[in-house]
Computed example of a mutant assay.
Amino acid sequence: MSDGLPFYLSTLAADPINGRIRFTSTGRDRQGEIAIKIARTIDFGNSNLRGGETFLATSLRGRRLGRQVIRNSFRLSEFLGLARMSIHAVLDGRYAWARCGFAPDPEAWPRIKKQLLSVLDAERFRKVPTERHWALQVIASDSPRALHMLSKIDTLVEFEDAGEDERVPFGRALLCSLTMWHGTFDMASEMSRMILFGDTQ
Protein backbone atom coordinates (compact mmCIF):
# COMPACT_ATOMS: atom_id res chain seq x y z
CA MET A 1 0.00 0.00 0.00
CA SER A 2 3.06 2.31 0.22
CA ASP A 3 3.77 2.57 -3.52
CA GLY A 4 4.03 6.21 -4.66
CA LEU A 5 3.47 7.64 -1.17
CA PRO A 6 5.96 9.81 0.77
CA PHE A 7 5.88 7.53 3.82
CA TYR A 8 6.46 3.86 4.43
CA LEU A 9 3.20 2.40 5.71
CA SER A 10 3.21 -0.18 8.48
CA THR A 11 0.31 -2.60 8.15
CA LEU A 12 -1.53 -4.55 10.82
CA ALA A 13 -4.03 -7.22 9.79
CA ALA A 14 -6.62 -8.88 11.97
CA ASP A 15 -7.07 -12.65 11.91
CA PRO A 16 -9.47 -13.76 9.16
CA ILE A 17 -13.11 -14.01 10.26
CA ASN A 18 -15.78 -15.51 7.97
CA GLY A 19 -13.63 -15.08 4.88
CA ARG A 20 -12.80 -11.46 5.68
CA ILE A 21 -9.49 -9.83 6.58
CA ARG A 22 -9.42 -6.29 7.94
CA PHE A 23 -6.15 -4.39 7.76
CA THR A 24 -4.94 -0.92 8.64
CA SER A 25 -1.89 0.78 7.10
CA THR A 26 -0.39 3.79 8.85
CA GLY A 27 2.35 6.26 7.89
CA ARG A 28 3.86 8.73 10.35
CA ASP A 29 5.66 12.01 9.79
CA ARG A 30 9.02 12.98 11.34
CA GLN A 31 7.30 14.09 14.53
CA GLY A 32 5.66 10.68 14.87
CA GLU A 33 2.19 12.01 14.08
CA ILE A 34 -0.11 9.96 11.86
CA ALA A 35 0.08 11.45 8.34
CA ILE A 36 -1.67 8.68 6.39
CA LYS A 37 -4.08 6.02 7.62
CA ILE A 38 -5.87 3.54 5.40
CA ALA A 39 -8.29 0.85 6.61
CA ARG A 40 -9.67 -1.79 4.26
CA THR A 41 -11.48 -5.13 4.51
CA ILE A 42 -10.83 -7.92 2.04
CA ASP A 43 -14.10 -9.83 1.67
CA PHE A 44 -13.21 -12.98 -0.25
CA GLY A 45 -16.76 -14.37 -0.08
CA ASN A 46 -18.18 -11.36 -1.95
CA SER A 47 -15.03 -10.74 -4.04
CA ASN A 48 -14.85 -7.20 -2.70
CA LEU A 49 -12.30 -4.82 -1.19
CA ARG A 50 -14.33 -2.66 1.17
CA GLY A 51 -12.98 0.78 1.88
CA GLY A 52 -12.86 2.00 5.44
CA GLU A 53 -11.05 5.03 6.76
CA THR A 54 -8.81 6.96 4.36
CA PHE A 55 -7.04 9.79 6.18
CA LEU A 56 -4.46 12.20 4.78
CA ALA A 57 -2.97 14.96 6.95
CA THR A 58 -3.89 18.45 5.77
CA SER A 59 -0.29 19.09 4.65
CA LEU A 60 -0.53 16.15 2.22
CA ARG A 61 -3.82 17.10 0.55
CA GLY A 62 -3.92 18.51 -2.97
CA ARG A 63 -0.90 16.45 -4.06
CA ARG A 64 -2.85 13.60 -5.72
CA LEU A 65 -1.88 11.24 -2.91
CA GLY A 66 -5.51 10.26 -2.33
CA ARG A 67 -5.64 9.07 -5.94
CA GLN A 68 -2.41 7.11 -5.35
CA VAL A 69 -3.96 5.44 -2.29
CA ILE A 70 -6.93 4.38 -4.44
CA ARG A 71 -4.61 3.15 -7.21
CA ASN A 72 -2.76 1.03 -4.64
CA SER A 73 -6.10 -0.39 -3.46
CA PHE A 74 -6.93 -1.19 -7.09
CA ARG A 75 -3.61 -3.02 -7.55
CA LEU A 76 -4.22 -5.04 -4.40
CA SER A 77 -7.75 -5.92 -5.57
CA GLU A 78 -6.42 -6.90 -8.99
CA PHE A 79 -3.68 -9.06 -7.45
CA LEU A 80 -6.26 -10.85 -5.29
CA GLY A 81 -8.63 -11.34 -8.23
CA LEU A 82 -11.46 -9.39 -6.59
CA ALA A 83 -14.42 -8.24 -8.70
CA ARG A 84 -15.01 -4.86 -7.09
CA MET A 85 -14.07 -2.25 -4.54
CA SER A 86 -16.80 -0.61 -2.46
CA ILE A 87 -16.94 2.55 -0.37
CA HIS A 88 -19.08 4.63 1.95
CA ALA A 89 -18.36 8.21 0.81
CA VAL A 90 -18.38 10.89 3.50
CA LEU A 91 -16.56 14.21 4.04
CA ASP A 92 -14.06 14.90 1.20
CA GLY A 93 -14.63 11.34 -0.04
CA ARG A 94 -17.99 12.42 -1.46
CA TYR A 95 -15.94 14.20 -4.12
CA ALA A 96 -12.70 12.19 -4.18
CA TRP A 97 -14.22 8.73 -4.74
CA ALA A 98 -16.36 10.02 -7.64
CA ARG A 99 -13.35 11.78 -9.15
CA CYS A 100 -11.46 8.46 -9.14
CA GLY A 101 -14.13 6.40 -10.92
CA PHE A 102 -16.41 5.06 -8.20
CA ALA A 103 -20.09 5.09 -9.17
CA PRO A 104 -23.02 5.26 -6.75
CA ASP A 105 -24.97 2.07 -6.15
CA PRO A 106 -27.98 2.10 -8.53
CA GLU A 107 -30.50 1.86 -5.70
CA ALA A 108 -28.97 4.98 -4.10
CA TRP A 109 -29.13 7.14 -7.23
CA PRO A 110 -32.74 8.43 -6.84
CA ARG A 111 -31.92 9.82 -3.36
CA ILE A 112 -28.61 11.30 -4.56
CA LYS A 113 -30.32 12.84 -7.60
CA LYS A 114 -32.96 14.48 -5.42
CA GLN A 115 -30.27 15.92 -3.14
CA LEU A 116 -28.21 17.24 -6.05
CA LEU A 117 -31.21 19.01 -7.58
CA SER A 118 -32.00 20.61 -4.22
CA VAL A 119 -28.40 21.73 -3.66
CA LEU A 120 -28.22 23.30 -7.13
CA ASP A 121 -30.87 25.80 -6.05
CA ALA A 122 -28.30 27.48 -3.79
CA GLU A 123 -27.26 31.00 -4.79
CA ARG A 124 -23.58 30.05 -5.19
CA PHE A 125 -24.50 27.67 -8.04
CA ARG A 126 -27.03 30.07 -9.60
CA LYS A 127 -24.20 32.61 -9.97
CA VAL A 128 -22.62 30.35 -12.63
CA PRO A 129 -25.59 29.54 -14.90
CA THR A 130 -23.62 27.80 -17.65
CA GLU A 131 -22.05 25.30 -15.25
CA ARG A 132 -25.34 24.86 -13.39
CA HIS A 133 -27.15 24.12 -16.67
CA TRP A 134 -24.49 21.54 -17.58
CA ALA A 135 -24.79 19.95 -14.12
CA LEU A 136 -28.57 19.69 -14.49
CA GLN A 137 -28.12 17.96 -17.86
CA VAL A 138 -25.64 15.48 -16.38
CA ILE A 139 -28.00 14.69 -13.51
CA ALA A 140 -30.96 14.26 -15.88
CA SER A 141 -28.97 11.72 -17.92
CA ASP A 142 -29.10 9.25 -15.00
CA SER A 143 -25.69 8.01 -16.14
CA PRO A 144 -23.74 5.76 -13.76
CA ARG A 145 -20.86 8.19 -14.42
CA ALA A 146 -22.89 11.27 -13.42
CA LEU A 147 -21.00 11.92 -10.18
CA HIS A 148 -17.66 11.63 -11.97
CA MET A 149 -18.78 14.04 -14.69
CA LEU A 150 -20.00 16.50 -12.05
CA SER A 151 -16.69 16.22 -10.17
CA LYS A 152 -14.88 17.60 -13.23
CA ILE A 153 -16.71 20.96 -13.33
CA ASP A 154 -13.88 23.18 -12.13
CA THR A 155 -15.24 26.75 -12.16
CA LEU A 156 -14.65 28.21 -8.70
CA VAL A 157 -17.62 28.89 -6.43
CA GLU A 158 -18.07 29.93 -2.81
CA PHE A 159 -18.34 27.07 -0.35
CA GLU A 160 -18.87 27.60 3.37
CA ASP A 161 -17.11 24.36 4.39
CA ALA A 162 -13.91 25.49 2.68
CA GLY A 163 -13.31 28.34 5.11
CA GLU A 164 -13.96 32.05 5.10
CA ASP A 165 -13.60 33.74 1.70
CA GLU A 166 -12.45 30.50 0.06
CA ARG A 167 -13.64 29.25 -3.29
CA VAL A 168 -13.52 25.66 -4.52
CA PRO A 169 -14.30 23.94 -7.83
CA PHE A 170 -18.02 23.72 -8.62
CA GLY A 171 -17.93 19.90 -8.69
CA ARG A 172 -16.26 19.65 -5.29
CA ALA A 173 -18.72 22.11 -3.72
CA LEU A 174 -21.67 20.25 -5.23
CA LEU A 175 -20.61 16.72 -4.24
CA CYS A 176 -19.44 17.76 -0.77
CA SER A 177 -22.94 19.12 -0.17
CA LEU A 178 -24.35 15.58 -0.29
CA THR A 179 -24.94 13.81 3.01
CA MET A 180 -23.12 10.63 1.92
CA TRP A 181 -23.29 7.92 -0.71
CA HIS A 182 -22.40 4.26 -1.20
CA GLY A 183 -20.53 3.28 -4.33
CA THR A 184 -18.51 0.67 -6.15
CA PHE A 185 -15.61 0.41 -8.55
CA ASP A 186 -16.08 -2.41 -11.06
CA MET A 187 -12.67 -4.01 -11.54
CA ALA A 188 -13.69 -5.25 -14.99
CA SER A 189 -14.68 -1.79 -16.24
CA GLU A 190 -12.16 -0.35 -18.67
CA MET A 191 -13.75 3.10 -18.24
CA SER A 192 -13.28 3.01 -14.46
CA ARG A 193 -9.66 2.01 -14.94
CA MET A 194 -9.10 4.86 -17.42
CA ILE A 195 -10.58 7.38 -14.99
CA LEU A 196 -8.42 6.15 -12.11
CA PHE A 197 -5.15 5.91 -14.01
CA GLY A 198 -5.66 8.69 -16.59
CA ASP A 199 -3.14 11.50 -16.32
CA THR A 200 -5.67 14.23 -16.96
CA GLN A 201 -8.42 13.12 -14.57
Rank of each mutant, 00 (worst) to 15 (best):
F55S: 06
N48S: 03
A57T: 15
L56V: 12
G62V: 03
R61N: 07
I36P: 00
R63I: 12
F44N: 04
F44L: 11
E33H: 02
R50M: 06
F23C: 09
I36K: 04
G52R: 01
D15I: 13
N48H: 09
R63Q: 09
D29L: 12
I36G: 01
I38T: 06
P6K: 09
T41V: 11
S10T: 03
A35W: 02
A14S: 01
D29C: 05
I38S: 00
A13G: 13
R22F: 11
G4C: 04
D43P: 08
G51R: 07
R20I: 09
I34G: 03
T26S: 10
Q31Y: 08
Q31M: 02
L5I: 03
F44H: 10
I21T: 08
A13F: 10
R28C: 15
S47Y: 07
F23S: 08
D3A: 05
F44E: 14
Q31F: 14
N18A: 09
N18D: 13
A39W: 02
G27K: 03
R63W: 06
I21P: 04
L5H: 08
R28M: 11
F44P: 01
A39C: 09
G52K: 14
L9G: 02
N46P: 01
F55P: 05
F23G: 03
S2K: 02
R61A: 08
G32Q: 03
T41M: 11
I17N: 11
G52N: 01
R20W: 09
A14R: 03
F23N: 01
N48L: 01
K37R: 14
L5M: 02
R28G: 05
G4L: 00
G32K: 03
T11G: 10
L12P: 07
I42C: 04
I17P: 09
F44G: 04
L5N: 02
S25D: 12
A39M: 02
G51V: 09
L9M: 12
R64G: 12
P6H: 02
R30T: 08
Q31H: 07
G51S: 14
T54R: 13
A14F: 01
A57D: 15
L5A: 06
I38E: 00
R30M: 09
S10M: 15
G62T: 14
L49D: 05
G62K: 11
L12A: 13
R20Q: 04
T54D: 07
I17V: 12
N46M: 01
A14P: 01
Q31D: 10
F44Q: 06
G19P: 11
Y8E: 15
L12V: 13
N48G: 07
S59V: 12
T24Q: 08
R40A: 12
L12H: 08
A35H: 02
N48R: 00
R22C: 08
S59Q: 07
R50L: 12
P16T: 11
R22S: 05
